[in-house]
Design a protein around this nucleic acid. Structure first.
Length: 1054
RNA sequence: GGGUGAUUAGCUCAGUGGUAGAGCGCUUCGUUCACAUCGAAGAUGUCAGAAGUUCGAAUCUUCUAUCACCCA
């Protein structure tokens, strides 16, 4: 067979992948030895809308390495594939598609039809990432591909899995255990998609913004002495004030302020704490008053030190408001528009005022019902409202003023002012302008919608994480689950120790609809059926509804896996209504409005017909769906068929390793830990390997807007999957970001070519395709390379065991290129082409074995080229992917052979170096003279003469008493060699070379002697270190002596 | 503001107490029968700075500077 000069990745990769897949090579348990230990990895599910990016390539390369490595070791291995349904992203993609096609909106279509579209889209485009992972060579068991929405109502054929059942079951179970509740809390609200979103879907971006400074006048014209002091207590500034100064980046939220807070230690405001101040916006006649309170949150050194508290629109304020019992007034609707519902402003403000005065209090829901947006601002966009608020305050003269030249205004400053009191300026001049600082602010944007996220107080479902966080923390603390690198365990602890309730509802359609049904709250315990006839006439019905208030304002709700499951619970709700209403048929309707309508209609009809069988009690299902992360949180068990006790679940759970990015430690890893413990009471994985980010070569995060994105598929096209994989692996130092450059990838592509050509050489010399038997050669060269192979096997296993992927890759790189190609292949040439038949045979066998070992050990990192060579080099029982990973070790190392070959290598390198520096023509063979060597060295030379001569271009060896004149001298391991170069040598140049070497030796020796002359070193350092140092010094001294002599000879010469 | 980490050759990075390393790039040489996607040789470092612990520090401690990321 004549091999090509290079590996054709484009041709081979798809062919080999198909071959593996057809052979079922990736199947769970493939190549497992009987009774083998199991090894399982769950893929972090990519979005079903997603396509492969560099992070995926990195993440999946590492997983594939582990999986292939374990599979080759005969372990019962599962790499579980799958995708998550990515609620918001997928819904957005499909809506966009709809818009392109025919301008039908989701709402126009209706929920059912829309979901049908989503499934349709999924069946067409959902497989993209799967085929891309195949390009990378990922050996996932595709027959088990999972999807977080499989088995959901409306799922088409081919999506019959039971993930949906698992998700719903977990929700119901957790609800029943009291771990899930409905409540009003502040969440990240996306005004574009009109849904709550997770922190992960929020991008905080530094944006040019403004900080406005306003005066909140004290109620009733009260005044106080405002005093500012320096650190020593000297008064810097003092004045009478009738206001407190507030800075804000979001003036429109002032409308919802519930208080002004200052730090308890802030003496400047101590005189006015407890007083009321006025929000300087809104109609003059209904100005709202709010209390000045103390809280730890305000930073006295920032701004004026006083903070306005808008509990319903800011996360920090929310905490302060909760601590201080401050009402939270919501100002916007779901689209981020200023509210226009509820009572007129005058009435709302009056209520708020009563609350501020302590005359009444509001429940959270009552506060939420109050609309404190002034009538003229109702219905405005939030940013427009901001402008109007600023205008109104400024017009009223309640903006803090400053000189036009104030640098904080962001304009060119003429005379910079010393900042005092957070920068307020009191110089009275005619050119005063409102103090509006131009400053960058961190602003939250929806990562999909790109609109500004609004913290909003809304009704949502929450997991009471406090109740389930314990086992997740303990597991990592006591080592049941290990997080690598260790630093990331700290991140994990930090987050879980400060965990907040987890908002799991989303106002979307694509997802697992929450299995909760609501009904109108009906009861009339005091009603007496005076006729006692078990029927209700018109009069009685009227009394029921009006006098006994049968229909209450609130709602009741019940949770079960399906509608049938809640019917009984709702019947019980009717128990305290009169017959026959208490026997009404429970039916499901669309929503609350439909329920009211259906109930009214039913009662009306009953009134006419007196037919109790027509009475219905309508209930409606919660329209919201669950956060995608809620379903992803069940990934380890859900993919294995839970709640059914499948054999796979028994075998592969808990899983062995999770490999994932640091950015989702909180969102996914921590939640899987909590969920698995909460649901099945077990850890989801033994080890979590957290990897860093792939960046561009300048260290910038790859992003579409920067245009520095490297597409892994393009890279695979250009360099081959193996090169991309090897690069990522070699750069995978634990916990460090990768700065990826194409140059580096090209370098590792070259490495593949190098391996290819070494194999090609072996094949040409009939030294390929071993049967796997470890050779037991007699030739030193062969004994040496067998030992080197054994050493690297141990190194690679140790590295992979410790998740040191880079160490494994680099060890193999050094071995294959630096040992096998640079030396062993060269050393083998005289033996392979020589006349000694037994040496030739043994070398062929050894080389065949060594090359095969390279293929075996490189396979997990470079699966394609190694499989191709494996097939090409010999007749094999199994494909490489299922071949046996080696297990030999140090017992194959022959120390004598090791020492001898190292000496030979050093000699060759020295000769080459001298030749190059003395400008000996590259092709010229020269003689070598030896004046001094040991018996062993002589024997070693004799054994390796052929290859030394060949590699160093030596014509012949002469033994001599003294070095001939004009020789260049070489000292190797105590032996003195020389190249007689009279006529060729440049004496001055050779002297310079020797001097340089001697200088370095002298420096080294000084250091070594310094240490050895220090009695404390000899006393306290370990014996082997002292011994090593002594030996090193002796060697240096010998070498120096030889070079010294050579230098002397040259000096005599002239 | 809080936390985590980084700072080592021109570049990208290994190196967790025992004389500073790799890859890439650079310079010179090379059409040697595996490979020019190659080979040979070479140059390049106050290991960010300061102080400490130690017989010995790139490595441990403290401080400083700069940068990055995460959380507020």
């Amino acid at each position: 067979m004549a091999m090509d000069k290079t590996f054709d990745a484009k041709d081979a990769e798809p062919r080999l992948y198909a071959k593996w897949e057809e052979a079922g090579a990736f199947r769970a348990g493939a190549n497992a030895r009987p009774g083998a230990e199991t090894f399982s990895i769950m893929i972090p599910p990519p979005n079903v809308t997603g396509s492969l990016h560099m992070g995926h390539a990195f993440n999946n390369t590492l997983q594939d390495i582990l999986v292939r490595w374990h599979r080759m070791r005969g372990h019962d291995t599962l790499w579980q594939p799958g995708q998550d349904h990515a609620g918001i992203a997928t819904q957005m993609v499909v809506e966009r598609e709809l818009a392109k096609e025919g301008n039908v909106t989701r709402r126009e279509m209706g929920r059912e039809a829309f979901l049908e579209k989503v499934w349709e889209w999924k069946s067409q485009s959902g497989g993209t990432i799967m085929s891309q992972l195949r390009r990378l060579g990922a050996s996932l068991d595709w027959s088990r591909n999972a999807f977080t929405m499989s088995g959901a109502p409306g799922a088409p054929a081919g999506e019959e899995g039971n993930f949906h059942d698992a998700v719903i079951k977990v929700f119901v179970d957790m609800y029943e255990k009291g771990l899930i509740y409905r409540g009003k809390r502040l969440v990240n609200w996306d005004p574009h998609f009109e849904t709550a979103i997770s922190d992960l879907e929020v991008e905080n971006v530094e944006t040019p913004g403004h900080m406005w400074h306003f005066k909140y006048p004290l109620a009733g014209g009260a005044t106080y002495t405002y005093v500012e002091k320096d650190e020593e207590g000297n008064v810097l500034f003092e004045e009478e004030r009738d206001y407190i100064s507030i800075a804000t980046t979001r003036p429109e939220t002032m409308l919802g302020d519930g208080a002004v807070a200052v730090h308890p230690s802030d003496e400047r405001y101590a005189p006015i704490v407890g007083q009321l101040c006025e929000i300087p916006v809104g109609p003059k006649e209904h100005r709202r008053l709010i209390p000045i309170i103390t809280d730890e949150y305000p930073d006295p050194s920032f701004g004026s030190g006083a903070v306005k508290i808008t509990g319903a629109h800011d996360f920090n304020d929310y905490q302060v408001a909760r601590r201080g019992g401050i009402p939270m007034y919501r100002l916007m609707d779901t689209t981020g528009t200023m509210r226009s519902d509820g009572k007129p402003y005058a009435e709302a403000a009056e209520t708020a005022l009563e609350v501020a005065r302590g005359e009444r209090s509001l429940s959270v829901d009552e506060a939420d019902a109050i609309n404190l947006v002034p009538d003229d601002l109702r219905g405005l966009d939030r940013f427009e409202a901001r402008e109007r608020v600023v205008e109104q305050i400024t017009a009223e003269g309640l903006a803090v003023m400053t000189q036009e030249s104030d640098p904080r205004l962001g304009k060119a400053a003429r005379t910079p002012l010393a900042p005092e009191e957070g920068g307020e300026d009191r110089v009275e001049e005619e050119s005063l302008v409102p103090l509006v600082e131009a400053k960058p602010i961190m602003q939250p944007f929806g990562d999909r919608s790109k609109v500004v996220i609004e913290p909003m107080l809304t009704d949502q479902w929450f997991v009471d994480t406090d109740k389930i966080v314990g086992p997740a923390l303990d597991a990592v603390r006591n080592g049941d689950t290990r997080i690598l690198p260790e630093r990331d365990a700290k991140v994990y602890f930090h987050w879980l120790e400060n965990i907040e309730p987890w908002c799991i509802s989303r106002q979307l359609w694509w997802g697992h609809q929450i299995p909760v049904w609501y009904g109108l709250d009906l009861s009339a315990p005091d009603f007496r059926d005076q006729e006692g006839d078990g029927a209700l006439d018109a009069v009685e019905l009227g009394e029921l509804l009006i006098k006994d208030h049968m229909v209450h304002a609130g709602e009741v709700h019940h949770c079960a896996a399906d509608f049938e499951g809640v019917v009984d619970a709702f019947r019980l709700e009717l128990a305290d209504t009169p017959t026959p209403i208490d026997h009404a048929r429970v039916i499901e309707v669309e929503d609350k409005a439909a329920a009211i309508h259906a109930l009214a209609e039913s009662l009306a009809q009953y009134n006419v017909t007196q037919d109790p069988t027509q009475l219905v009690y309508p209930v409606w299902r919660d329209p919201d769906v669950l956060d995608t992360w809620f379903s992803s949180g069940l990934w380890p068990i859900g993919t294995l068929g839970w709640p059914e006790q499948t054999p796979e679940l028994q075998k592969y759970f808990p899983t062995s390793v999770l490999i994932t990015g640091f950015d989702i430690i909180f969102f996914w890893v921590a939640r899987m830990m909590m969920m698995q413990y909460a649901v099945v009471g077990e850890k989801p994985f033994d080890t979590v390997y957290v990897h860093a980010l792939v960046r561009d070569e300048k260290g910038k995060k790859m992003s579409k807007s920067l245009g520095n994105v490297l597409d892994p598929l393009e890279l695979i096209d250009e360099y081959g999957a193996d090169a991309v994989r090897f690069t990522l692996t070699a750069m995978a130092a634990m916990g460090r970001d990768l700065k990826l450059s194409t140059q580096r990838i090209a370098g590792y592509r070259n490495f593949g070519t190098k391996l290819w050509n070494a194999a090609r050489f072996a094949e040409m010399n009939e030294a390929a395709g071993s049967d796997g038997t470890v050779p037991q050669p007699t030739e030193t060269v062969n004994r040496w390379i067998v030992g080197e192979t054994a050493k690297v096997r141990e190194e690679v296993d140790a590295a992979l065991d410790a998740f040191r992927f880079d160490d494994a890759a680099n060890a193999l790189y050094r071995f294959v290129w630096g040992k096998v190609c640079d030396w062993y292949v060269e050393f083998s040439k005289p033996l392979l082409s020589g006349t000694d038949a037994s040496a030739q045979a043994e070398t062929r066998a050894t080389m065949a074995w060594v090359i095969d070992q390279c293929l075996l050990m490189l396979h997990p990192i470079m699966p394609f080229i190694t499989e191709e060579l494996w097939e090409g080099l010999g007749t094999r029982d199994k494909m490489l992917i299922h071949s046996d990973w080696p297990s030999y070790g140090a017992e194959l190392v022959d120390p004598a052979a090791d020492a001898e070959m190292n000496w030979v290598i050093q000699l060759i390198e020295e000769i080459r170096s001298v030749r190059a520096q003395m400008h000996v023509p590259a092709g010229l063979h020269v003689n070598l003279v030896v004046t001094d060597w040991t018996k062993d060295q002589k024997a070693a030379f004799a054994r390796n003469e052929a290859l030394i001569k060949r590699l160093a271009r030596v014509e012949a060896l002469e033994e001599a008493r003294a070095m001939p004149k004009g020789s260049a001298t070489i000292a190797v391991g105590g032996a003195s060699f020389g190249l007689p170069l009279e006529g060729i040598i440049d004496v001055a140049e050779e002297k310079a070379r020797l001097e340089k070497s001697l200088d370095k030796l002298a420096k080294d020796m000084r250091g070594l002697e310094g240490r050895l002359n220090n009695p404390k070193f000899v006393e306290s350092a370990p014996d082997d270190v002292v011994e090593e140092t002594r030996e090193l010094l002796t060697a240096k001294q010998e070498e120096a002596a030889a070079l010294q002599a050579a230098h002397a000879r040259l000096s005599e010469l002239g």
